[in-house]
Design a protein around this nucleic acid. Structure first.
Length: 458
DNA sequence: ATGTTC
């Protein structure tokens, strides 16, 4: 090990991590060339491909970049949109709203969207990200302001993305996908920090918000696969000693490394535009509540990436260093004062969105000052899976699960019964515990707890 | 996560 492994957990979360390969995977990561300070696991960590999910690792310019440290779903992430509606106003129209959202936003495995972009347009989109969406009428100016990286990460080069990735992804831009991806109608359940909540336009208990969780679909998946394959042989060529072949990695300064970074950034912009197009359709869907949805104040609160590697400056051994921070199932969580936080939030910290599993709470948090030293400014990304998909399917039969959710006041629209059972609340860790541990560790602090009243799933 | 073993 070149650096220690640091795990943020309480006893129960740690015990769970000890039952799969989470910790041995974090140890493997700690052996990679050029790693700085720690190989880390966030409180929601569990076993993943090569790197643990919930893993954070930063490499210097003498170090490596690894697709396994980003994940298959490049820039999988979450965005939160507010409304000025209350629970009482929306309740009578909730079914119509969910039907409208389910109709307007294609979901499910292999789903394609109603948008059609040719290859030139797709390349422009992945170069420019949300800036393209603003210029083409799919976003308002504020949407750009309230995305991490403005939803437009620099250095994307779609010529480094395969034709296959483009042809898979092109028809999927503006679709939700499957697995744990969702659209959720949330009601504010509890506010922990009124001043900060107000800054985000969260002003009362029972206020309705919309949470959108999806990523780069087949475009990012194919890009990850392509580069894992290329790097497997390249890793050997650069004499990188891999403790696990799933950790395929190359020097950040190598041709293969630079190509992957350019392709990954293209996929990241794809994901931001995907969440943006879905936002556009969600806003339109609210037409069933008010024919003029612009009266509903549906502003973007924030959009975070939780599967990405970012070039950032951090203090290491008393000097400012350029690092490639891999966050896989982990959220950037910069504290107050960072110039990378929108002006409106700069004195309170970067919003961190922690979605729970279907039917459980989600959290709005803020990056804490001092987090930079602790975790390169990172926090958890969700509840974290507790049970395998197959176990969840066996344990939670569809009909019983649906009636249980209905009893708790949660309406569900889903493309697949298997997806619903695989995503049963019991298949995940307790998000309340993850949020509490994240706060106690000094990574991010709780601002608001949200509870779902309507869910659209793939 | 994913045209879920192209």
């Amino acid at each position: 090990m070149k650096v220690p492994v640091k795990i943020y957990a309480n006893e129960a979360l740690l015990e769970k991590m000890q039952q799969d390969r989470t910790i041995s995977q974090a140890i493997n990561v700690s052996k990679l060339p050029g790693i700085r300070k720690f190989s880390m696991v966030m409180p929601d960590g569990h076993e993943g491909y090569g790197f643990p999910i919930g893993g954070v690792a930063a490499f210097g310019e003498d170090g490596v970049i690894s697709p396994g440290g980003v994940g298959y779903d490049i820039n999988c992430g979450v965005r939160l949109v507010r409304t000025n509606l209350t629970m009482a106003e929306i309740k009578p129209k909730l079914n119509a709203l969910l039907d409208s959202m389910y109709r307007n936003v294609p979901s499910g495995l292999g789903s394609s969207s109603g948008f059609r972009f040719n290859m030139t347009a797709l390349d422009d989109i992945t170069k420019e990200g949300v800036r393209w969406a603003v210029e083409n009428g799919y976003a308002i100016e504020d949407d750009f302001e309230y995305c991490e990286e403005n939803g437009s990460i620099a250095g994307a080069d779609p010529s480094k993305v395969s034709k296959e990735a483009k042809s898979r992804g092109g028809k999927q831009l503006g679709s939700l996908g499957s697995g744990n991806h969702f659209l959720e109608i949330e009601a504010v359940d509890r506010v922990f920090d009124e001043r900060s909540a107000k800054r985000m336009g969260i002003v009362r208990q029972g206020q309705i918000l919309v949470l959108i969780h999806t990523g780069s679909r087949g475009y990012g998946h194919q890009t990850c696969s392509d580069y894992l394959q290329k790097m497997e042989s390249a890793s050997h060529r650069y004499n990188i000693d891999l403790p696990d072949r799933e950790l395929a990695a190359v020097p950040v300064t190598s041709r293969e490394g630079e190509d992957y970074i350019s392709a990954m950034r293209s996929a990241a912009n794809f994901a931001w535009v995907n969440r943006q197009l879905i936002t556009h359709m969600v806003r339109k869907s609210f037409g069933v509540i008010n024919s003029d949805f612009e009266k509903l104040d549906m502003k973007l609160i924030y959009d975070v990436a939780h599967n990405i590697a970012k070039k950032e400056e951090h203090m290491v051994d008393g000097e400012n260093q350029t690092l490639y921070v891999h966050r896989k199932g982990a959220t950037r969580a910069f504290g107050a004062g960072s110039k990378f936080i929108p002006q409106e939030y700069r004195d309170i910290g970067q919003p961190v969105l922690i979605p729970g599993s279907m039917g459980t709470a989600s959290y709005v948090m803020l990056g804490q000052s001092g987090n930079d030293t602790l975790s390169f400014g990172s926090a958890a990304h969700g509840a974290g899976r507790f049970m395998s998909r197959s176990s969840a399917r066996r344990r939670y039969p569809y009909e019983g699960l649906m009636s249980d959710l209905r009893r708790r006041g949660i309406q569900v629209r889903a493309a697949s019964t298997d997806t619903v059972t695989e995503e049963a609340p019991g298949a995940y860790k307790d998000v309340d515990v993850v949020a509490e541990v994240t706060e106690m560790a000094g990574l991010a602090k709780r601002v608001a707890r949200l509870i779902p009243i309507g869910v659209v799933k793939g």
